[in-house]
């Protein structure tokens, strides 16, 4: 990857992470761990120019679609959309409050830039399948990205979606699995072992790429190669660290769904700025 682009994406990811921490602290509840783990992927998707989208026209007809199937990680989506200009950044501090456009889980009717409502795990990938099928029907050459959690892959519906996507040869669909190794009750290997992840998807007929989800070169390569794959859907298995960028949250189960208090917020922000220098 071009080094200037990489620098820019790294800076965007830092800003996204800081906004995630700030908004969660202001909300007093929400999900930091799984938001931080995919911040680099969001930075790449929204700021590398790979997506055909227009913040000034969120409903643009031939736009690419992004489905946050693991909807609880919406702080990363909201921070990114605000930074991209879909709505004013001042909205971020209203997260989870009564009357806010930023609901506890993504609401396509309230938040500009959100392509589908999610929050009940397992459903988003099926919605993405429907979008990809709809686009094909219209000979509409768009891409559909779906971000799926590794705990979310416990849901049977995920595998129904996986099967149907390859059945219909949805080469316009790219799933990204945020393989951070944690769910709520503990490590995925202890709660419900979904390994080997890549083998599962490929045995269902998907082209798979395994990458480090914090490495921009690898993210770019996998997404670009993924877009050019023909005849089958693509799954990018992104190994990540839950809580990435905030040392005291990294790989700690309890930071799945706990908001930082003021003191922890300051510490977290200094961590983010330090970790990425």
């Amino acid at each position: 990857m071009d080094s200037n682009l990489k620098k820019m994406l790294e800076q965007k990811a830092r800003d996204i992470r800081v906004d995630i921490i700030n908004m969660l602290c202001a909300a007093g509840s929400g999900h930091p761990g799984g938001s931080l783990s995919i911040a680099d992927i969001f930075s790449y998707l929204y700021f590398s120019g790979i997506l055909n989208i227009d913040p000034a026209d969120p409903g643009k007809e031939n736009r690419d679609r992004v489905v946050l199937s693991k909807g609880h990680a919406c702080p990363v989506l909201y921070a990114t959309l605000a930074m991209k200009g879909y709505f004013d950044r001042s909205e971020l501090k209203t997260l989870r409050k009564y009357g806010s456009i930023l609901q506890g889980h993504p609401d396509m009717n309230k938040t500009p830039g959100v392509d589908i409502s999610t929050g009940s795990l397992g459903q988003g990938l099926s919605c993405a399948v429907g979008m990809a099928l709809g686009a094909k029907l219209d000979k509409n050459d768009i891409k559909v990205f779906a971000i799926v959690g590794d705990g979310e892959c416990d849901e049977g519906q995920i595998w129904e979606a996986v099967m149907s996507a390859s059945h219909y040869r949805l080469d316009n669909l790219i799933a990204i699995v945020d393989l951070n190794g944690l769910q709520i009750d503990g490590f995925t290997k202890d709660i419900m072992d979904t390994s080997p992840m890549a083998e599962k998807w490929s045995s269902f007929g998907w082209k798979t790429f395994e990458i480090d989800g914090h490495n921009y070169d690898m993210i770019e390569e996998a997404v670009k190669k993924g877009i050019s794959v023909k005849g089958k859907p693509v799954c990018i298995i992104a190994r990540t660290t839950k809580g990435k960028g905030v040392a005291f949250m990294e790989n700690i189960c309890d930071w799945h769904g706990t908001a930082p208090d003021k003191e922890q917020k300051e510490k977290a922000i200094s961590d983010i700025n330090k970790a990425c220098l």
């Binding site: 929400g30 989870r96 609901q103 506890g104 889980h105 609401d107 409502s117 999610t118 929050g119 009940s120």
Partner: peptide, 8 residues
């Protein structure tokens, strides 16, 4: 349930 919103 509160803050988690409609889905929960």
């Amino acid at each position: 349930v509160g803050e988690d919103g409609a889905t929960h």
